[in-house]
Write a protein that binds this DNA or RNA. Sequence first.
DNA 1: CGATTCGATCGAATCGTTTCGACTAAAGTA
DNA 2: TACTTTAGTCGAAACGATTCGATCGAATCG
Lengths: 359, 359
Amino acid sequence: MDETASTEAPRPNLAAVAALAGVSASTASLAFSGAGPVSDATKAKVLAAAAQLNYAGPDPRGQSLRRGRSGIVGVVLEDSVSEAFRDPMNIATLDGISDAIGPSGSALLLLTDNAEGPSSFRSVPIDAVVLIGCSTRLADAVHVFAQRGVPIVGIETEPMPSVLAVDLDNRLASRRLAEHLRDLGHRDVTMVTLSLDAPHARGWATPEWEARSEGYTASQRIAGVRDVFPASSAFVSSASTVDEGYRAALEVLASSERPTAIVAQSDLLAVGVIRAAQELGLAVPNDLSVVGFDGVRLDGIAPIDLTTMVQPAFAKGRAAGEGVLALLAGEAPAGQLFDSEFHLGATTAPPQSARTAHH
Amino acid sequence: MDETASTEAPRPNLAAVAALAGVSASTASLAFSGAGPVSDATKAKVLAAAAQLNYAGPDPRGQSLRRGRSGIVGVVLEDSVSEAFRDPMNIATLDGISDAIGPSGSALLLLTDNAEGPSSFRSVPIDAVVLIGCSTRLADAVHVFAQRGVPIVGIETEPMPSVLAVDLDNRLASRRLAEHLRDLGHRDVTMVTLSLDAPHARGWATPEWEARSEGYTASQRIAGVRDVFPASSAFVSSASTVDEGYRAALEVLASSERPTAIVAQSDLLAVGVIRAAQELGLAVPNDLSVVGFDGVRLDGIAPIDLTTMVQPAFAKGRAAGEGVLALLAGEAPAGQLFDSEFHLGATTAPPQSARTAHH
DNA sequence: CGATTCGATCGAATCGTTTCGACTAAAGTA
DNA sequence: TACTTTAGTCGAAACGATTCGATCGAATCG
């Protein structure tokens, strides 16, 4: 085979392939895309020419410009990659999204919402975007996407126009947990919450702090507990991890008026809380009741049967993915609200006082 | 403000903005990109026109065609999203990549190598790609990327031309662990390995199976142990999880000739192995020595001080990311080989026989 | 005051593909 | 045989931006 004498080797073109095959560029395009009628003979010629020129197929950049679609769905996570994926709920959600949009041939673009580079939001060719539990401060990003006509799906994000909501009954579910504790006789309940803001500060919640909260989920869950225990205080953790739960509980349990129950806003936090309690010599649930949230499989983490609300994270992700597909198809799908299910575990019991009073 | 009378509202163009602002398209482009000299007055005019037309800035699709860069780096994971992210090493690696390429304004595109859709590999506009521990069967994908001139970095992938290698001393490190066991007096060692192939089969390794292994890392680690214990057998797990380690160990420890030590190819597997051993009434390390691999922080998982090789997963990711940047800059960076560090934990001890012989 | 530089702007070409409408020739129909 | 269908192919016009070289004043320098 004779090597083409051109000194440089510019990457071959669809036009070049077409020229070599002796057909027009449009026919060559048809040969590759399969849309439209092309005789087997010409298709073979085109493919042969492509092979000879070492052509790898139509350039996605040209395609996406012309077709107006890049085949990429953005996913905005609240934090850095490692922080976001430390939470099993996020992984399950992402898996659900991936599962839903995978068959359409789209891929997922990870966008992280750390302060440094909001630039990438503007400069990335995505067909749609899913916000996973993102804080309010994403409002401007949302605006940019909307301006551009990029469909937006928000999972547990503050309701916004032009954002298709996939939501969870956070407030109701938290109220349900609180009612469970109230029914057991608890009166003195403290929360350990998810992060309220981007800097991920840690400490006792103040009314001002709660008021300017950027964490929609956290706020909803606080509200649910307050529906039952209006005066309950909240310690804000900086992330949904076992370690953060542990740190939070050390502070909570060291405070002068120790609660009889702790409502942790995630199972990982709850595990940390339990660990701290045990370390302080408090038996769970006898000396302290603990509830979580999420229904994470704790198999690999701790042999604890946690009282918690089990939420369908994978299904939420799937719904978001399906929402994306529907929006891209030009439909106008309705938002979805998912329910969590109460799971009675072995980490809640009547408080000491109730039991002694009973005797 | 008067609404433009056009009945439809086609998304505005850079050209449209330029026209409204009374400048040429090239000047408008300059106004947005910041490259090239533009007077403050015209820039203001252009921005005002953009605001009036509700223009969100240059369309990334047009940009990427013209500039030849999309600002997207692909990451190919071996499995589905959830499977891949169950392994903390992958997360740490991904975090490292993200950390390295983030400042360049690039984002990460998740590509999963499940059988269904290899289509997305071909049709996605990426500037470079990182393969994370991918199996040999990706050879054709690699070929496509190479054809297209997409730089490729492979983390612990079988060496291939046109793939920049970021590797780990898997064989050496495994040998190191084996030597540790040998020095303690062990003679009878069994491995619990990572997956050898895509279907993720589980069971005792046979020579044929090992020969057609698609798992480069697993094979290297097997080889390292065999350097010391040539006859050691291996039980192949289907994933790097606690649960898989548990299942594998149940089989291994049920076999007629029970080993005195188990070399697990990951810390998660090791935790599962230990759990199984304890359940069978075997004390670790007295009745059974167990070593892992990775140096995962087990804080949240199990209170075990595991004897293991600590590998720099984040640094590996960073190196891969830097490799990508270098390749994109037209440089010819050298591959990197990372070392793991031996950590002596509390899960290894001389075997029973040696101890009784000593007395 | 003439020559030179420099800042600001514009035109035109280009990136690589898809797709719409038109055209040709062969095949089917009356 | 004349007419309609249809498969196969082609030309040309987008898609939306960037960038190179040229142009044209104004300002600086000797």
